[in-house]
């Protein structure tokens, strides 16, 4: 009892440290733009909320379009991934076939090779497929996911076989079993995977920068970089803070709402 209270207190201290950059981001983004100010680093607001930085960030970019593209990209990747990882996860969890372990290891290879490592060959590939400069091209390399297959395999393995066996005895096909019994039961596992998938693709920078040219297919991180990566002079910290807040807000809010559900869904994946 006492030990756990000490633990919470120590964790609270860590949390204060963890929160500091966010606190600064919030305060700096809401400061009026009278820069050259010496107390730019202060964690306490120097006055009432000023929308200057948000207005400048919002008008320097095309946030509505970037939001739409990013949501489309993450949603599209997730939709295709759900199909590919469920099917493959089931095969590895439930079917006996020659070379299963070898093929599984081959799958895991992808875990180590995100497109950032293989930029040039992947660009050549999406160009050959006619997907260069489109959101589909950004999404393509991610449509198969070793991480997802791994998670789904664990999820399926952790489920009792009773339902499936009963359904199979009743004459259901494997695909029917997957669609009507396993997928609904795997909801929490899929939810956990969804959060991991959306988070990583929402935040990726280098690959979307490379794979897309047209402004109409630009995503949030690439857009944000246009005012965080100035080269010959200093950054405008307030605007950077405001832009970062705008980019991260949807995920932060989403996490605040679904926090409990997310943690409990991870438990169901059988990652013990």
């Amino acid at each position: 009892m006492k030990a756990s209270r000490v633990g919470v207190i120590l964790a609270a201290l860590a949390a204060i440290l963890w929160l500091a950059p966010f606190a600064w981001m919030g305060v700096a983004s809401a400061r009026p733009q009278v820069s050259g100010a010496l107390d730019l680093a202060s964690l306490f607001p120097s006055g009432p909320f000023s929308p200057d930085n948000y207005i400048e960030a919002w008008t320097s970019g095309h946030f509505p379009l970037w939001y739409a593209n990013t949501i489309l990209l993450c949603g599209g990747i997730l939709a295709v991934q759900t199909v590919t990882v469920s099917l493959a996860g089931y095969a590895f969890a439930r079917l006996q076939f020659p070379g299963r372990e070898t093929i599984f290891t081959l799958f895991l290879l992808q875990l180590l090779l995100p497109p950032a490592v293989l930029v040039v060959p992947n660009l050549v590939m999406i160009t050959k497929l006619g997907l260069f400069d489109s959101l589909a091209g950004v999404a393509a390399p991610y449509c198969a996911s070793a991480f997802g297959v791994f998670l789904m395999r664990q999820t399926f393995r952790a489920m009792p076989r009773d339902f499936e066996d009963a359904a199979m005895v009743d004459g259901a096909t494997r695909l029917q079993v997957i669609r009507h019994i396993l997928i609904p039961l795997a909801g929490p596992g899929l939810a956990a995977f969804a959060v991991v998938s959306v988070t990583s693709h929402w935040n990726e920078f280098l690959w979307p920068l490379m794979a897309v040219s047209s402004p109409r297919a630009q995503v949030l991180t690439v857009g944000l970089a246009s005012f965080t990566r100035g080269a010959e002079a200093g950054g405008e910290w307030g605007v950077i803070a405001a832009g970062t807040t705008l980019v991260a807000a949807p995920l932060l809010l989403g996490f605040l709402f679904f926090q409990r559900r997310f943690v409990s869904s991870l438990v169901f994946t059988g990652l013990k």
Binding site: V8, A11, A12, A14, A15, W18, L19, P21, F22, W24, M25, A28, L40, A41, T199, W202, N203, E204, F205, L220, T221, L224, A225, T228, R229, G235, W237, I240, A241, G243, T244, V247, A248, L251, L252, F255, L256, Q259, V263
Partner: peptide, 22 residues
């Protein structure tokens, strides 16, 4: 507290870099 500790996961590393330069 859990939420606070997880929050950094949710912002892009390029943006984190810009913040930490400051």
């Amino acid at each position: 507290l859990r939420t606070i500790i997880v929050m950094p996961l949710l912002i892009p590393l390029v943006a984190v870099a810009a913040l930490f330069i400051f």
